[in-house]
């Protein structure tokens, strides 16, 4: 019995908790992508770099606050700096829209044109981030490191395996939950939220009903940029900030959005957790886990790892291809046109 509990705790510690945190970060990113897709009808390829941009400004503001001696105690200072980063990301997104995408909207260009234009935006944002903060790893988490540590859990439970929850992980899940609830309330309850959904559902009819497309587009960028910054900051607090890693997050984020049904916010959240759990579970080494569940004094040969962690992208990719081949509309019937 203790063995089973130990195995469970082990699994929670190395798969459950990290995947939950990672899934929350992906969900925030995927929500942005799916909203942009729903309203503007193209895959926004610069989303990873928008995340990096917002996070970078947040980091700079964090350093500034730290230099002034401001601190949030156990919570990371970055939370206080977040509004600066979000504002910068919103500004960047709105400028990109005004300078680039508005023109093609007026022309009623095909989605692929928007898509290529977003590659241009990606280059610019990427360059800005690399110039301002550099291409290297940055760590900016401060405050309390752990909600509780492995040792504390072991003493409390009497098990030989321990469970640790880092402050950043708890923060990620709580913050993501609050933001998601707020977003869904906004979309379901407010006039603007309904207008966004209506516009995404049926653009012509929304226009007939008097929805102002310029406002819908503006709101979409604002929300997506804020979500992107939050996702990026939480990811950076949880792991670390590196511009290139953020670009690479595009793949799991899009996999999540497409799995859930692109254009569907609910789908983006569900898809994000599925992608995150698959990724962590497939790349976790189950050796010790199996030892607890197997017979006494037995140890499996090898690590029992399905794929090495370097191949985690292939998980997103396989999910993506499986969805596209079997059910292109995704779990929640997204748009395919």
């Amino acid at each position: 019995m203790t063995d089973i509990l130990n195995a469970l705790v082990l699994f929670m510690n190395f798969v459950g908790v990290p995947a939950l945190a990672y899934g929350s970060q992906l969900a925030l990113g995927a929500l942005g992508v799916t909203l942009i897709f729903g309203v503007l009808r193209f895959a926004f390829f610069a989303h990873g770099d928008l995340m990096a941009f917002g996070t970078m400004v947040t980091i700079l503001a964090t350093w500034g606050l730290q230099a002034m001696g401001v601190s949030l105690g156990v919570l990371p200072t970055a939370l206080l700096a977040l509004p600066f980063g979000a504002a910068a990301a919103v500004l960047a997104a709105l400028s990109a829209d005004k300078a680039v995408f508005a023109f093609y909207r007026k022309q009623r260009a095909k989605p692929v044109v928007f898509f290529i234009a977003s590659v241009g935006v990606m280059f610019v944002l990427n360059g800005l981030v690399r110039i301002i903060i550099g291409p290297d790893d940055q760590r900016f988490a401060d405050g309390g490191r752990f909600l509780f540590k492995v040792g504390e859990f072991r003493d409390w439970s009497g098990l030989s395996e321990g469970l640790a929850i880092r402050t950043t992980q708890a923060l990620t899940v709580v913050a993501a939950l609050i933001v998601m609830v707020a977003l869904f309330r906004f979309l379901e309850r407010t006039k603007m939220g309904k207008a966004m959904r209506a516009y995404s559902d049926n653009e012509d009819l929304a226009l007939l009903s008097g929805v102002d497309p310029a406002r819908v587009v503006r709101w979409t960028w604002v929300i997506a940029a804020v979500l992107a910054t939050l996702a990026g900051v939480l990811y950076g607090l949880d792991k670390s900030f590196k511009p290139f890693t953020y670009f690479q997050l595009l793949l799991p984020i899009f996999a999540a959005a497409i799995l859930g049904g692109i254009g569907s916010p609910k789908g983006a959240v569900v898809g994000a957790y599925i992608v995150a759990f698959s990724e962590v579970m497939v790349t976790y080494a189950y050796r010790k886990f199996a030892m607890y569940l197997g017979p006494q004094d037995w140890a499996p040969e090898g690590l029992l790892q399905l794929l090495s962690t370097e191949y985690k992208f292939s998980v997103s990719f396989l999910i993506l291809v499986a969805v596209l081949v079997t059910r292109p509309t995704g779990l929640f019937k997204g748009k395919v046109f």
């Binding site: 207008a195 959904r197 209506a198 559902d201 049926n202 009819l205 929304a206 009903s209 008097g210 929805v211």
Partner: peptide, 16 residues
Amino acid sequence: VFASMSVEENLEMGGF
């Protein structure tokens, strides 16, 4: 109609 929205929301959008 707005296919993904409820009947009531469709009517609300009508009175937007």
